[in-house]
């Protein structure tokens, strides 16, 4: 890999990062002015100093007092009472409060609904690619109920060569709603094999390859899933008299 290319890539990443940072700061500045006031119906509602159960309770909102929601993070909401006191309340505590007209408060889907409605998946995996350790990142989109299209980038670094694979996969999920759901897939992409520069007569090979595989996804909790894959890549041309590679990985993904 030439240093100029890696420098350009570094500059691009840095500028993208700065843009993202600037955009996030600007997004903070745009505040929402409309307020929804909720009334406490239980005996009291606890407010913590931070968005987590490890943070101390420092304020109690009594029954019939009102509060408004400012922003949320994971399962917690930053609330402000009518008297101006700010603190973090758990989603379940906010859901016991009543709306302005006595309505019930609910915050979208949780848990199992999220699993059933999942569309986008982002994850990474590590494992073995024909004897070499491999690290891959992937992003997938679910079409309908049973199909997933996925883009995957794998990089295996071995003692003699390093392999990079860019693949597009189509997976079929026969039982998508189960907690542990298997999948079968086929894919197509490019595999690039670069021998170590210390070797003599090193030949760089880049070929189209097809792949077929199977695996399973297991929903852990919230938006996490664990995934295992077994895949066979077949190249259109040999690398050192070897045209088939087996990849076995264990991965971790977040889904939305």
């Amino acid at each position: 890999m030439s240093t100029n290319r890696s420098r350009a890539r570094g500059a691009l990443t840095l500028s993208l990062g700065c843009l993202l940072l600037a955009w996030s700061l600007a997004a903070r500045a745009a505040a929402d002015e409309s307020r929804l006031w909720l009334t406490v119906t239980q005996a009291y509602a606890e407010m913590r100093t931070g968005p987590g159960r490890g943070y101390p309770v420092f304020y109690i909102v009594e029954r019939s007092q009102t509060f408004t929601l400012l922003r949320g993070r994971t399962d917690w909401y930053l609330v402000e009472t009518a008297r101006g006191q700010r603190g973090w309340m758990h989603r379940l505590v906010v859901e016991t409060a009543a709306g302005p007209g006595g309505e019930r408060v609910m915050f979208g889907h949780t848990g199992h609904d999220q699993w059933l409605d999942r569309r986008v998946e982002l994850g990474f995996a590590a494992g073995d690619f024909d004897g070499d350790p491999v690290f891959s990142a992937r992003t997938g989109y679910r079409l309908g109920a049973h199909f997933v299209i996925e883009a995957q980038l794998s990089q295996a670094a071995g003692s003699f060569s390093s392999t990079t694979a860019y693949h597009a996969n189509l997976q079929i999920l026969p039982f998508p709603d189960q907690r542990i759901t298997p999948h079968f897939g086929i894919g197509v992409g490019r595999i690039r094999n670069e021998p170590r520069s210390t070797l003599v007569d090193a030949v760089k090979v880049e070929e189209w390859a097809g792949s077929a595989g199977l695996g399973a996804r297991a929903w852990l909790t919230r938006r996490f899933l664990v995934r295992t894959d077994l895949r066979q890549y077949v190249l259109t041309r040999d690398i050192d008299n070897n045209d088939a590679f087996t990849e076995m990985t264990l991965g971790f993904s977040v889904f939305f």
């Binding site: 940072l21 996030s24 929804l36 922003r71 709306g99 309505e103 609910m106 915050f107 979208g108």
Partner: peptide, 18 residues
């Protein structure tokens, strides 16, 4: 059978930094 409201709150689960 009360009505249900689903407040739209800005959730900030992403963090970008250097």
């Amino acid at each position: 059978r009360r009505d249900i409201i689903r407040p739209a709150v800005d959730t900030e689960d992403w963090e970008v930094g250097a």
